Amino acid sequence: MSEEADIFDKVFLVVEDEYLVAADILDVLGRAGADVIGPVSSLEGALKLVDEAEQIDAAVLDIHLRGAEVYPVADALSLRNVPFAFLTAYDRGDLPERFREAPFLQKPADPDELLHLLSRL
């Protein structure tokens, strides 16, 4: 089964405050046939979407969002049993201990690497 088939018709929440990075993520997901909620660029907006969305199959999370950290969103997704990956300029060692084993990719990310990571969520 191809990676595209692994995410076809899945609903991804994209939490990213950099426009060009968000556009790249949307492009990768769109080409693979996924549906997207977002992108959302603020902690408050992301928490609202997690709370209100009927379906989220997986999420892509930037860590730093306009002065806030995305960890409350990761916690909320975990409570819903929604898998997520961090896509960030941070190092894995910068993550809180509870998220050190989460799927992780550093920016700038190669589109094929990103697709591979997202297909495993």
Rank of each mutant, 00 (worst) to 15 (best):
M1W: 13
E3R: 14
E3C: 03
A5T: 10
I7H: 01
I7T: 02
D9F: 09
K10Q: 11
V11H: 04
L13P: 11
L13D: 15
E16F: 01
E16A: 03
E16N: 05
D17C: 00
E18N: 14
A23R: 14
D24R: 13
D24E: 15
L26F: 02
L26Y: 01
V28I: 07
L29T: 02
R31N: 07
R31I: 03
V36R: 00
I37T: 05
S41N: 13
S41H: 11
S42W: 09
E44H: 07
G45Q: 10
A46V: 02
L47C: 09
K48P: 09
K48M: 07
E52G: 14
E54M: 06
E54Y: 05
Q55I: 12
L61S: 01
L61Q: 06
D62L: 00
I63A: 07
H64F: 08
L65T: 10
L65I: 06
R66S: 14
A68F: 13
V70S: 15
Y71F: 15
Y71L: 02
P72M: 10
P72R: 01
D75V: 04
A76H: 08
L77F: 04
S78W: 10
L79H: 14
N81V: 12
N81L: 12
F84W: 08
F84K: 02
T88W: 05
A89Y: 11
G93S: 12
D94N: 04
E97H: 14
P103H: 11
F104E: 02
P108E: 01
A109W: 04
P111N: 01
P111T: 00
D112W: 02
L114F: 00
L114M: 00
H116Q: 12
L118P: 01
L118D: 07
L121T: 01
L121D: 06
